[in-house]
Nucleic acid binder design. Structure first.
Lengths: 383, 383
DNA sequence: CTGTTAGCGCTTTCAA
DNA sequence: TTGAAAGCGCTAACAG
């Protein structure tokens, strides 16, 4: 004896075929087709079945739609019903399955972050800044590091895209000359923000610091300290950041009427090994430099170590300035003069910019200020 | 003329209204409502509709199962069909949607890594080691850092669990005394491996190094160098790693007949600030130590900086030994004697252990070797 | 060898 | 206010 779920009558109900293995009924009184609500039995084979809205609906004898609505906080739901649902959900430790949602909405709430390395202070700190903002906004973060390898970068972008990240925060490798993998990202309309090592030819939003002025001030400082033969151990030409710092270096020389000597300018791939090789090379020149401006602090520190091992006195015989204000630069002896950049803030800005992008795409470049921090590695005692 | 999709008869089918713009039919013979299966047209409103197996199936006029099978590389499929499918997939740049798969299989192919910080060398390096193994095994990595805060750790575990990670690699904070959040993880049968800062009371697999012997050798080395009042700036008692290094310290003292002086032993929370405070405290004692064994390199370096600022000569007036062989320890002056541990390898081992767990749960502890690296901060010139 | 179908967990129409 | 059902993209059991 089946009771119509609509009019609650029994006598007019007849079977009306089987759909999806479920017996369907038809009430001739109210012309209503229906199936009997089945209690949802959590499968016994899955040992730790995650609680689903169906479990809640089953126990309460209501439909999963209602549960969903209650959980989502929809307004058009009976207050009592909502309370019962919410209570049971709490009691059952219900946790919504983000995968189902992700599939439905094509949104994963995951942001991919891709950096060349995180051995040094710089990128980990940026990541922490970004994470601060992103997790507040409800996003998780998937971090990849390309290890300064173009191939790894391409593979990582692919992996992140295949994980369907909702956005991408990227700093490219020193090798990266081809940007097709990022074009693919843009083509699929995944928001993309570059920071530090950006990609100017791609017309995407980016966060950088005022590299040019930072470099300019650093080199001018060396000149003011009386150094006369200032070399620059630069990053690869492919990176805008290298080119900007280089330009700052060149313009500072020019402003003070110093000649540009090509043998004093070296572009390198930012590897520790090469830093050492080129530092040695510079210091072995027949007319070696009396100061070196390094593209960043790790480079500057390698130079210091090489100089020390050759018995060259810093800052008396060799002035050194780095870039970024890595904590080591305050610890090493002599302490390293460097250009401070707001690293943590850069991560935050990049994250904020990405969130904005996801709201409404628009192209901006945020440029943060830098500040010269004068320490002992560049204070020429002769002057 | 419409054929019933159920009984295949034509004569009993009549229109039964329109639902969602689709013509519905009703077969009076078998009492079956149905709509005509429509060919899958990729929606035009979604600008960048991701290519699905349905697109491929539609274009080829075959079923999506066949496409799925071809793509999965099943054997029981016509070679010609496979080729056509594979070719079209390539041409369309088909990328499988991992979300659908994840939902189906309840596997995300994401591993969560939770560390207390990644400012220093240690944890980033471990992470790189782990990533090396995990990405080879086809896993992505979601990294969280608890910033040495218990609350953040709990929140992170919750976030990672709600992201349905397939496994968890964890090093706890210095504050963590309550392990209920990890019990929840175990209850849900998510594989969990601890490394470095482990949780002995939880009966999970773990990767650690031989902290006891490392510490023992470090302190014995100080004794052999002629230091007589050796302090220990230790980590929090809550961490096994602190207790083991402490025990190594105590046993080395005992072996050589040195008294244990409680005022020379300080447990602290591993924050930079406190390191400075306690270093100052130790060096201001009426009978200050003539050597300090620090729980790790960052701590040792803080001590060195404090000592230097007080004009205390290292190693002549104060011997210092750290733990971990952070690259800074080779750079700072004097260079820091430290206990090397295979950090990268630790990450790899932890990852491998996790992968094993996911195959077949079993409880193991991997203990890696340590090695004392003698540098200048502990070579007592008086002896 | 291939097609049909159910279902992973959820939201969202549409219908009632 | 609630329920039914479609559908996100995919795999796999089952049937032919």
């Amino acid at each position: 004896m089946i009771k119509c779920t609509k009019c609650q009558q029994i006598e007019f109900v007849q079977k009306s075929g089987i759909v999806r293995g479920k017996q369907r009924y038809f009430c001739k009184s109210c012309n209503y087709h229906f199936t009997l609500p089945e209690p949802h039995n959590p499968p016994d084979n899955k040992r730790h079945h995650q609680v689903t809205i169906m479990d809640i609906a089953g126990q309460l004898g209501i439909s999963k739609s209602t549960v969903s609505r209650a959980l989502r906080g929809h307004t058009d739901i009976h207050a009592g019903t909502r309370k019962i649902i919410l209570d049971l959900a709490q009691q059952l430790e219900y946790q919504p399955n983000p995968l189902a949602n992700a599939l439905l909405k094509s949104r994963t709430n995951i942001i991919g972050i891709l950096v060349p390395e995180f051995r040094h202070y710089f990128f980990p700190t940026i990541i922490m800044g970004a994470q601060e903002i992103l997790s507040k906004a409800g996003y998780n973060v998937m971090i990849c590091q390309s290890d300064e390898s173009y191939e790894t970068e391409v593979a990582n972008v692919k992996a992140l895209m295949s994980s369907r990240v909702d956005g991408l925060l990227v700093s490219v490798t020193a090798q990266t000359n081809n940007f097709d993998h990022f074009r693919t990202v843009l083509r699929k309309e995944v928001p993309l923000v570059f920071f530090n090592r950006v990609c100017p030819e791609l017309d995407t939003p980016q966060v950088i610091v005022d590299d040019y002025n930072g470099a300019f001030q650093a080199v001018e400082h060396l000149i003011e300290q009386g150094y006369r033969r200032i070399a620059h151990l630069a990053g690869p030409v492919s990176l805008l950041v290298s080119r900007l710092r280089m330009q700052g270096y060149l313009d500072a020389l020019q402003k003070h009427g110093f000649p540009v000597e090509n043998e004093l300018i070296i572009h390198y791939d930012l590897s520790e090994e090469k830093a050492r090789i080129y530092a040695n090379y510079l210091l072995s020149l027949s007319q070696p430099p009396d100061a070196i401006f390094a593209i960043n602090d790790p480079t500057a520190i390698e130079i210091m170590l090489v100089a020390k091992s050759r018995g060259i006195k810093i800052p008396q015989e060799l002035g050194i300035v780095g870039f970024s204000n890595d904590p080591i630069s305050a610890i090493i002896e002599p302490s390293l003069t460097t250009v401070e950049q707001p690293v943590w803030e850069m991560g935050r800005q990049a994250a904020r910019l990405l969130l904005e992008q996801m709201e409404s795409p628009h192209n901006v470049t945020h440029t943060l200020d830098t500040k010269l921090i004068i320490r002992n590695s560049s204070v020429n005692l002769r002057s």
